[in-house]
Amino acid sequence: MKKWFVLISMFFLMSCAHEQKEQQQSLQQENITNVSHDGSAKRSDQQQAKRAVDMLKEREDVKDAVAVEANGRLLVAYQVKHLHRFRMKQIEKEVGKALNEAFGKKVIASHDLKIFWKTKALKEKIDTKNISEKEIEKEMTVIQKLSEEQT
């Protein structure tokens, strides 16, 4: 019994330690996106993407957001805070409506984690390497196709 108690408490401590690390990571992520915001501001073709990110970050239920734009298309990926995920459909509807109203161009919005990772990688690529709009569009099409997959 004592052995189990020790094991269970060890498990608890380990999960607590990881949670702290995760919190730190998410804070770091926020810093990274903040830093990259400054980077994207330099590119004049990413102004609306920056506006979309700022708009989403104002929402209480959105944890993090990242956006990329190219050739009249705006790709927005966001993460919803854990307990707010119960209202995911409603949030999805609200965000989609708000983005469509604010931006005249075709908006692709997704709360999927994989889409978030992919969009973030693309954004970092745009910030660090000076890739052309055609290449951005090509990658955006791949991400859009991925986000539309059903099974």
Partner: peptide, 14 residues
């Protein structure tokens, strides 16, 4: 599966 393959949150269940 999501990190190393092209699965999204929607498709990773299977």
């Amino acid at each position: 599966y999501m990190y190393f393959f092209d699965f999204t949150e929607k498709t990773v269940g299977n």
